[in-house]
């Protein structure tokens, strides 16, 4: 646990020292969402209708933005060798790095989302559910992303392939995330969708560290 927290702290520290990473993710998120009112027109009803979907799709894409470097930097400078050899289980290394990714790329999205919801004229009553759905769903984005990042770690330009691998796997998160907000807007019960969203995140927490660790071991051979 001590090693786990050390690694987590280092990754968050690195993200801050190198600046940009979190800032870029948030800026990308904001710009993507603001493009929609410009493209669709300022019709408040249409915006409110597409709002939840737009915010969630933009969140998926923003999370993807910084994923390709998740393991690659460590792979290139040899740190991954030392992490594999260290007393910390490689699966725990994956979780620590995914958690750092969530803290630097998922959490900021959560903080800025209410502002964007205002842009999209989202029902005020749905704000709580929007935040809850993002809070429950974005960890899955980081965890599934870790598998893709591990599979493409040895590729020089793995970013595009990473998107192809990962985006289809984001579909369940997207569906349940959006349907929870829709339910809140139409005043039906959002709880089943939120529970399913949480289930998706928990399943990925169980499976993706194992898959990502296996992919990393393969990449180092």
């Amino acid at each position: 646990m001590r090693l786990f927290l050390n690694l987590l702290r280092r990754d968050v520290l690195l993200a801050f020292r190198q600046g940009s990473a979190s800032g870029m993710t948030v800026a990308f998120f904001v710009i993507t969402v603001t493009l929609f009112p410009l493209a669709v027109g300022p019709d408040a009803v249409i915006l409110a209708r597409i709002g939840p979907g737009v915010i969630w799709v933009a969140a998926l894409l923003s999370a993807l933005l910084s994923l390709d470097r998740l393991f690659q930097a460590d792979f290139e400078d040899g740190a991954l060798d030392l992490l594999v050899l260290s007393p910390l289980l490689l699966e725990a290394v994956v979780i620590a790095k995914a958690a750092a990714h969530w803290l630097t790329a998922g959490l900021p999205l959560l903080l800025i989302a209410p502002v964007l919801a205002l842009f999209m004229n989202l029902d005020l009553e749905a704000f709580g559910i929007l935040l809850l759905s993002l809070a429950l769903g974005t960890p899955a984005l980081s965890l599934i992303g870790a598998v893709g990042a591990a599979l493409t770690v040895a590729l020089k330009r793995g970013g595009a392939l990473l998107s192809l691998l990962i985006l289809p796997l984001y579909v369940p998160t997207l569906i349940f995330g959006v349907s929870a907000i829709e339910a809140a807007i139409t005043s039906s019960d959002p709880v089943p969708s939120l529970l399913l969203l949480m289930a998706v995140s928990l399943v990925t927490l169980a499976i993706s560290p194992i898959a990502a660790a296996a992919a990393l071991r393969l990449a180092l051979e």
Binding site: N6, R17, D77, G78, D81
Partner: peptide
């Protein structure tokens, strides 16, 4: 049991010398 020091040095350019050494030292 072992220290492996490959030709890749596993150092983070954004961290100081002491931070780099301390991170790996505490890790092992």
């Amino acid at each position: 049991y072992l220290h492996y020091a490959g030709h890749l040095m596993a150092l983070k350019p954004a961290l100081t010398v002491l931070e780099n050494v301390r991170f790996w030292a505490e890790f092992y």
